[in-house]
């Protein structure tokens, strides 16, 4: 029961705010609605017993990425002149891409996932992970990330990618020689 309530609240937040993001003409309000949408996704993570993911969602998406978007709007536009037409020349392509992604995810959940989980009823099993994993998700997550028999190579690859992005950002922001003089 509690899981259903969390799920319903989370999905209403995520989908309703997502709808506002794409239809609202005010860019700043759209960015705020995006933050609410991320909050809804965090609530869904919680209902799936993924507390660490939920906290990471709050920390990274709401605490960092949405703030970055809001900063960009604050610093690049004239104040209060943030109304935009939500449709631009790419909207048909974007529509096609998002419909494709939705179709792939939907078919994966409905047809492929029940075969891998022990439960044969689609969309009924709570989670496809073992109970032992749910006992202490943080410890298991940590040892899976850096354990030799875990995901240490993808983890290190992701860190190298992040490091490269950071170096790139510093080089972009580095003052050019003619500016310094």
């Amino acid at each position: 029961m509690a899981e259903q309530i969390t799920f319903i609240i989370g999905s209403i937040l995520a989908l309703g705010a997502g709808f506002i993001v794409v239809t609202n003409r005010n860019l700043f309000h759209g960015a705020l609605a995006l933050m609410i949408s991320f909050l809804g996704v965090a609530a869904i993570y919680l209902s799936l017993d993924a507390g660490f993911l939920a906290a990471a969602q709050l920390l990274i998406y709401i605490g960092a990425i949405s703030i970055l978007i809001i900063f960009a709007i604050m610093l690049t536009r004239r104040m209060m002149q943030t109304t935009e037409d939500p449709f631009n020349s790419q909207f048909l392509l974007a529509l096609a891409a998002s419909v494709t992604v939705f179709a792939i995810l939907f078919s994966a959940i409905v047809y492929v996932w029940p075969l891998t989980a022990s439960n044969s009823v689609p969309l009924a099993a709570k989670t496809a992970v073992a109970d032992a994993v749910l006992q202490d998700t943080v410890v298991n997550l940590g040892s899976a990330f850096v354990g030799a028999d875990g995901y240490v190579i993808p983890f290190e690859l992701a860190s190298i990618l992040l490091l490269a992005a950071m170096v790139g950002a510093i080089i972009v922001a580095w003052p050019k020689p003619e500016d310094v003089a």
């Binding site: 660490f52 906290a55 990471a56 709050l58 920390l59 709401i62 605490g63 960092a64 703030i67």
Partner: peptide, 9 residues
Amino acid sequence: MFFLAITSI
């Protein structure tokens, strides 16, 4: 994590 996340909000 929760405390850090809420602080960033």
